[in-house]
Design a protein around this nucleic acid. Structure first.
Length: 418
DNA sequence: TCTGGGGTCCTAGGACCC
DNA sequence: TCTGGGGTCCTAGGACCC
């Protein structure tokens, strides 16, 4: 099957550039939550040598002295731009897997000129959304990923790379480092290199038994895909999450139980809303807190979990349980950096059943309140309605000193043309 | 001063069953 | 010296992805 991987170039930076032309041709760095470290870089920023994950304070001067700009991440904008891009891509194939916020796999029909199609995809997405993309085309997902990376690495390829015949595939693989293969991370690439397996062609020629022993069945699938045997299917329908997590670092250290409980309530409410969006209920929850491991100050971290007799659905129930758990592990005298919640054992909400020891009438009422809150927040914007125990001032909330407007999702922040 | 957040899958080993 | 065979379920930990 002819498989394409379409990947947006420097996606977050590109989203920002669509609405602010002043960001063209200068180093632009988008920072993680809390303005902590670099998570997206323009080509100009990359050529200054700024690596993914570089802490803000370690690259601030370099970027600013080169007339560059920092931006806080604006996920509302990126999420909305992503769905625009995906909408355009879906016109090119009925068989599409949205793989991440900035990538999609597509099955393409057998066509005479895949290269022309790739060009058409690039031009259409660019014109309709403003986002530049790269296209890699081959016969399996792993090979399409490889082609895409090759397109990005070679300026001559003009953002599109096709490898369909064996000779071409072999020649690309022979100069493709194992550490760049999709599915081969740090640990495996170190291991492979220690065995003298340096490039993708070397890996594809290894014995199946050896691969399975050293890299489990997951590694074997990757190797087969490198050989052109498709074994990672296209997932056209996004599966429901099995776990949902919400966690954040604090903008300023948290030292009191009162603030910790406010933050915990906010994250719990956020996780509960995400869970209801996919129509699930949680069988268990787990919470954790921790100090800042990069500090010399006294360290402490802990977690606690609880199982519910019957799966829970409402924000009220989830917040209540999370607060009692976090209280049980909170110790005063520490400067906390982070806390979070996991909702586990998610089941479809239509299979909710009353438990013998539950107050069914109360649960029903709370479930309805949660759904009403969700619909109001959907209509009037996030956190139009929130529970009081999240606190009002939220001094612990994350830093986002350089956030751009929500150009596409908030009437008050529309782009103004002068 | 300052280092993100949110997921998935697989395996080994222990506990338990008959 | 010697201690069955076959299975399930759960959890922790390690690998990976963006």
């Amino acid at each position: 099957m002819i498989t394409a991987l379409v990947d947006c170039n420097n996606f977050y930076v590109s989203c920002e550039r669509v609405f602010d032309r002043r960001l063209e041709n200068i180093p632009v760095v988008v920072l993680s939550n809390n303005d902590g470290c670099a998570i997206a870089r323009s080509a100009e920023a990359k050529s200054l040598g700024i690596e993914l994950g570089t802490p803000f304070h370690k690259c601030r001067d370099l970027v600013l002295t080169n007339n560059g700009k920092f931006l806080s991440s604006n996920y509302t904008l990126y999420g909305d731009m992503s769905s625009r891009v995906m909408n355009v891509l879906s016109m090119f194939s009925p068989d599409m897997e949205v793989y991440s916020i900035d990538e999609a796999f597509l099955y393409l029909p057998e066509i005479e000129s895949p290269y022309e199609l790739a060009e058409k995809i690039r031009a259409t997405v660019r014109q309709w959304t403003g986002i530049p993309v790269s296209v890699g085309i081959s016969t399996t997902k792993v090979l399409a990923k490889t082609a895409n990376r090759t397109a990005k690495k070679n300026p001559a390829s003009n953002g599109a790379f096709v490898m369909l015949d064996d000779e071409k595939i072999k020649s690309v693989l022979s100069s493709f480092s194992v550490s760049d293969i999709w599915g081969v991370g740090d640990a495996y690439s170190r291991k492979l290199i220690s065995y003298g397996i340096m490039n993708a062609l070397d890996l594809s020629l290894m014995d199946d038994k050896w691969i399975k022993k050293e890299m489990t069945i997951v590694g074997l699938r990757i190797v087969h895909e490198l050989r052109g045997i498709s074994c990672i299917p296209l997932e056209t329908v996004a599966a429901d999450k099995k776990n949902i997590c919400s966690s954040r670092s604090f903008g300023v250290p948290v030292t009191t139980l009162k603030e910790m409980k406010e933050a915990m309530s906010a994250y719990a409410a956020n996780a509960a809303e995400k869970m209801r969006r996919q129509k699930s209920a949680a069988s268990a929850i787990s919470v954790y807190l921790s100090t800042n491991p990069f500090n010399d100050s006294p360290q402490y971290g802990n977690s606690a979990s609880a199982k519910f007799m019957t799966p829970v659905f409402s924000t009220q129930q989830i917040v209540k349980e999370s607060l009692s758990l976090i209280e049980s592990i909170f110790r005063s005298g520490f400067s906390y950096k982070k806390c979070g919640i996991f909702l586990c054992g998610l089941v479809p909400d239509d299979s909710l059943q009353g438990g013998l020891f539950c107050d069914y009438a109360r649960d029903e009422k709370e479930n309805k309140v949660s759904m009403v809150m969700d619909s109001i927040n959907k209509k009037y914007g996030k956190s139009s309605l929130f529970i009081a125990c999240e606190g009002i001032d939220k001094e612990w909330s994350m830093r986002r000193n350089f956030k751009s407007p929500s150009y596409t999702t908030n009437w008050n922040e529309l782009l103004k043309i002068k």
